[in-house]
């Protein structure tokens, strides 16, 4: 049990872009959109049985004909510039009492992904996820740049719309990346890979919603393609983003005016540290309490 190769492409120091589901599905949408745009081809998969419960059952005429598992696929694309590998995991191997992957199962999966990266001479891996932030949904999502080596910090300065944990976001440079998007970077560090997590901002009041947030994925792709020297057409992702924003707007209009006024303050909290400080931790708690109260009430009425 482990990795199943369909064939072994010849690649030259490819970068590996990884996507798993999470808040707003920011990471998996970013990785999978880029994979589709560059028309990457599948060449391997991680056998899922050890990590996942089956997701689908098909019975035909009383015969169990299909029991399918979440997919964990590797793709590649040779380009004139940088060769690319992708890993798209349909699910994180979570336990019943946890939303995200953790523990030995997650560690094993992260190592298997990196085994493939190592086999093909990869030196750098990118993960991606959501950065739950005090931003408004009408604002452009920025990208938090979290490297696994100090030498990579300066690279963040080369990109537009990108910030580091320390400095713009908070003064300590401390934080957490939950689940495999974070764990993989740690394992990559241990095994000597360069690793960067690109976290697209998702408004704090949308973090509990089971909807995608493609606006953040788009910001992540822009950083990635800048780094890779690629020009890509993101119009389909923009269309999806517009549709989602329209849905959010509809929901937003239903929020009581006093709560909305507080959320509207977030429209002014982008780009400068000074503005961010205008919203305090106390404000943040109050906003979330208002939102929770609103949705509890809505839930009750339904």
């Amino acid at each position: 049990m482990g990795i199943k190769y369909y064939f072994e492409p010849e690649l030259e120091k490819p970068d590996l872009v990884i996507g798993w589901p999470g808040i707003g599905n920011v990471g998996i949408i970013a990785a999978d959109t880029l994979r589709r745009i560059v028309r990457a081809e599948q060449f391997a998969e991680i056998e899922p049985y050890e990590f996942f419960y089956p997701k689908k059952l098909v019975i035909k005429n009383s015969i169990l004909t299909e029991l399918s598992f979440p997919s964990n696929r590797f793709y590649y694309r040779k380009t004139n510039g940088k060769d690319l590998m992708f890993f798209i995991g349909e699910e994180q191997p979570s336990e019943p009492d946890s939303m995200y992957a953790k523990g030995s199962k997650a560690y094993r999966l992260a190592n298997l992904v990196l085994d493939v990266a190592q086999k093909f001479g990869c030196q750098r891996v990118y993960t991606s996820g959501a950065a739950v932030s005090l931003i408004h949904h009408t604002s452009t999502s920025r990208v938090w740049f979290v490297p696994n080596k100090p030498a990579l910090i300066n690279e963040a300065k080369k990109y537009k719309n990108v910030l580091l944990m320390g400095g713009s976001i908070n003064t300590t440079g401390q934080g957490n990346i939950t689940g495999l998007n974070g764990l993989l970077l740690g394992v990559a560090k241990k095994r000597g890979f360069e690793g960067i997590c690109l976290m697209g901002e998702v408004p704090i009041y949308l973090q509990g919603f089971p909807i995608p947030y493609p606006k953040a994925s788009k910001s992540v792709i822009k950083v990635l393609t800048t780094k890779l020297g690629m020009k890509v057409d993101l119009s389909s992702l923009q269309n999806l983003s517009d549709q989602v924003e329209a849905q959010i707007e509809q929901l937003y209009e239903k929020i009581p005016i006093e709560v909305r006024e507080r959320l509207d303050q977030l429209k002014h909290t982008t780009f400068t540290e000074k503005d961010i400080e205008a919203i305090t931790e106390e404000d943040k708690r109050e906003i979330m309490a208002d939102i929770d109260k609103f949705f509890q009430r809505t839930g009750g009425e339904d």
Partner: peptide, 30 residues
């Protein structure tokens, strides 16, 4: 629901229902 056709055929003489068709819903785990 048998995992092999031959086995299902062995069970047809016991008055069991052997014509079940089913596909799990997206959020429903097998």
């Amino acid at each position: 629901v048998a995992n092999q056709l031959r086995f299902k055929e062995q069970l047809t003489s016991y008055g069991l229902e052997t014509d079940m068709n089913y596909e799990s819903a997206p959020e429903q785990r097998p």
